[in-house]
Amino acid sequence: MGKIAKLAMILTVFCVIASGSLAFVYLFTQPKIETNAEKSFEMSLREVLPVAEIFKAAKCSEGEAYIGIKGDKTVGLAVSVAPRGYSGAIKMLVGINADGKVIGVKVLDQRETPGLGANVVKRSFLAQFCGKTVKDEIEPKKDIDAITGATISSRAVARGVKEALKTAKECK
């Protein structure tokens, strides 16, 4: 009994020291980590919707979106979508202006095949979606040039843009 109590004591002491030092490091790094995350997300928002000055979370019946505001009027919407690609979800942001036109697309996170599907992050591919509206077909090999050899990934991104346009109609 005495032996077990002693071992437990020693282990407890180590755990307390470990938690203490971790709490200390956490205190120092956490603000930095949070601002990093916020900054990179806001940079992405600005990239897809450059006209807006500030962003506010939008109320949508489904999906997630941010209203872009300049002065006191709404200039557009940045919709967050995550279509299923070749290997896992492709997280992306789609910027849509007040006329319902796509003005910017950015891929935030993806796990597509390097050198192939991963090429969907390329500007030359994503730029093709600019100017599309909910009325357009938005279909690789028709009005969009697919990434060679990566039809599934290209289609996923196209599907994401279409979904974003649909979501945007139901956001306030």
């Binding site: 020693i10 180590f14 755990c15 470990a18 490091v25 956490y26 790094t29 956490q30 980590i33 990093n36």
Partner: peptide
């Protein structure tokens, strides 16, 4: 109890490097 103690020590340092990398090299 050396193995559990090793694990506590190692995981503490891993978590520290995890936080630091997250903060400074995102």
């Amino acid at each position: 109890i050396r193995i559990p103690i090793f694990i506590i020590i190692i995981s503490t340092f891993v978590t520290i490097s995890d936080y630091v990398m997250q903060a400074f090299t995102p």
